[in-house]
């Protein structure tokens, strides 16, 4: 447990996906490979609508993660909060599972509160010490433009939070849609983002929002190797995964 590495994808978006596979299926695929998917909806007023809200919730649910819908000024703090809570949850689930094996079906719920307080303390400590890898996946379709300065600030801020942890932390930042692929790697895996990077420059502003395919590509950034054959056939559609993996690696390393 001490060497645990937590993997998360954090999607920052402001609307519905409209291209490629379902982002909910993509999130389920990520979860299948031990990657938690969190989603933050950034909105200016109330432009998101019920459909977008539902999608955000469904992605997070399928990805075993958390979601929130906030104004741009709340973004930085939300990123930190959501990431931490999702980590705690993941670790708690693992601990819960282990305890279930010792204590029987009801597991931790059968422990008296005082004992569970100790478990909570342990979960907290494990969360702090474990390694954390996060890919931030930023929607850069046209409507996101006015929110990108807030996103940039949140990226920098997030890197400070990661840097303050005791455990090893890495983050990468990608934008979607990409120029050629579904996503572009803006900041490759790094332990600290020194300054707010300009992700606003030469963005592919277009009407398409391929959230699902972008999540699938982001999965490839984790050093897991390729998708299992059966899953890649089921989810990836017409795209060849080998090809995608290869070119992404080039970007990153």
């Amino acid at each position: 447990m001490k060497e645990a590495t937590l993997r998360q994808i954090l999607v920052v978006t402001d609307g519905c996906s409209n291209s490629g596979m379902s982002p909910v299926a993509a999130a389920a695929l990520a979860r299948e490979q031990g990657i938690t998917v969190n989603v933050i909806g950034v909105i200016e007023k109330s432009e998101l609508g019920e459909k977008g809200e539902t999608e955000i919730r469904e992605i997070a649910e399928a990805g075993g993660g958390l979601c929130d819908i906030v104004y741009p000024q709340q973004l930085a703090q939300t990123v930190q909060m959501l990431t931490r809570k999702a980590m705690t949850r993941t670790i708690h689930q693992v601990v819960h599972k282990e305890l279930k094996e010792i204590l029987g079906d009801s597991g931790i719920a059968e422990l008296e509160p005082q004992k569970r307080v100790q478990v909570a303390g342990m979960v907290d400590e494990l969360g702090e010490k474990s390694s954390l890898n996060v890919v931030m996946l930023v929607d850069t379709s046209g409507s996101m433009k006015p929110k990108l300065s807030a996103v940039q600030q949140a990226i920098h801020d997030f890197s400070i939070s990661l840097h303050s942890r005791s455990g090893r932390s890495r983050m990468a930042v990608c934008s979607f849609p990409g120029k050629q692929k579904y996503l572009d790697v803006r900041i490759p895996w790094t332990e600290q983002v020194e300054q707010a990077h300009h992700i606003t420059g030469d963005l592919a502003m277009s009407g398409i929002t391929p959230t699902g395919p972008a999540i699938v590509e982001a999965i490839a950034l984790f050093d897991h190797g390729k998708l299992p054959q059966s899953l890649s056939e089921r989810y990836a559609g017409t795209e060849s995964d080998d090809h995608e993996d290869g070119s992404l690696r080039d970007h990153v390393f």
Partner: peptide
């Protein structure tokens, strides 16, 4: 499972 613990805006 409560997946959306922090829906702070609309809900």
């Amino acid at each position: 499972m409560e997946a959306c613990v922090t829906m702070s805006f609309k809900q």
